[in-house]
Nucleic acid binder design. Sequence first.
DNA 1: CGTATATATGCACACAAATGCACATATAGC
DNA 2: GCTATATGTGCATTTGTGTGCATATATACG
Lengths: 134, 134
Amino acid sequence: MDTHNNEIRSLSPEYMAMAEAALDVFDTRFFKALCEPTRVEIMRKLVLLGACDVGTIADGLAQDRSVISRHLAVLERAGICQTRKIGRRVFYDIDGPHNVAKVASILDAIKPMAELCKPFEEFSENIKQQKGAA
Amino acid sequence: MDTHNNEIRSLSPEYMAMAEAALDVFDTRFFKALCEPTRVEIMRKLVLLGACDVGTIADGLAQDRSVISRHLAVLERAGICQTRKIGRRVFYDIDGPHNVAKVASILDAIKPMAELCKPFEEFSENIKQQKGAA
DNA sequence: CGTATATATGCACACAAATGCACATATAGC
DNA sequence: GCTATATGTGCATTTGTGTGCATATATACG
């Protein structure tokens, strides 16, 4: 094999910027944190209740308090939550402005994709070149 | 324990809608698909090259073609890519409009969070109630 | 037809992440 | 000080997912 070539777009700075943006934006702690059902459940609870200590958050959830504590640490490292310690309790709360800003920046980064990556748009022409390529 | 209570927001439809939105939007196939470094790398390559068959995409990547094939299937199920079969080859291409629309819808869903979930905003008042709660 | 190439799938294995328990640490209250 | 409660951490186990090889399926080519 190795008989492929269609580096049609490679030289265009528009597509290179697009590709860089995709790499920077995805596969980050923010995304990974939101891929876990339990962590999303925790988020939901925090939205409903407001700032909560770990025990309150863990109440009613299936997992052990220690597990919830770990998940909360992940959410905090991702910037999704903030913490405040009061006495022996640690309160967690959603950082709404941060989360909205994060998603907004992602949208900005990939927005050109709507125009530049219409599926199979230039396909009809390119496929001919590929067939004959060595 | 179980001596917690701060269901202050629970009755407000604004927060309930917010919580529902968070659940619907996160922890979905779209997010999971973008959490994998190899899949992001594939996306980047597709942005640069345009529509590609599996062999072309796998060229230069560390993993076996079969692995790349699996990743592409994940991306397609997540709506991130579309496929077109030409002869014995299957071409994949990024669905830019879909991806942008997806992120835009997520942003719309969580946008109220910027105002409604400022971290520890109502915290000063609520904490007093919690301390005295039975 | 039979052979060669492209892609997808079954299966086994490796590795990472989630989980639960026990325990360490920190703080409140006596 | 001692005891009780809240949170976080070490460790072992389980579970999920990525990976590679062998193989099945589909299509082109002769």
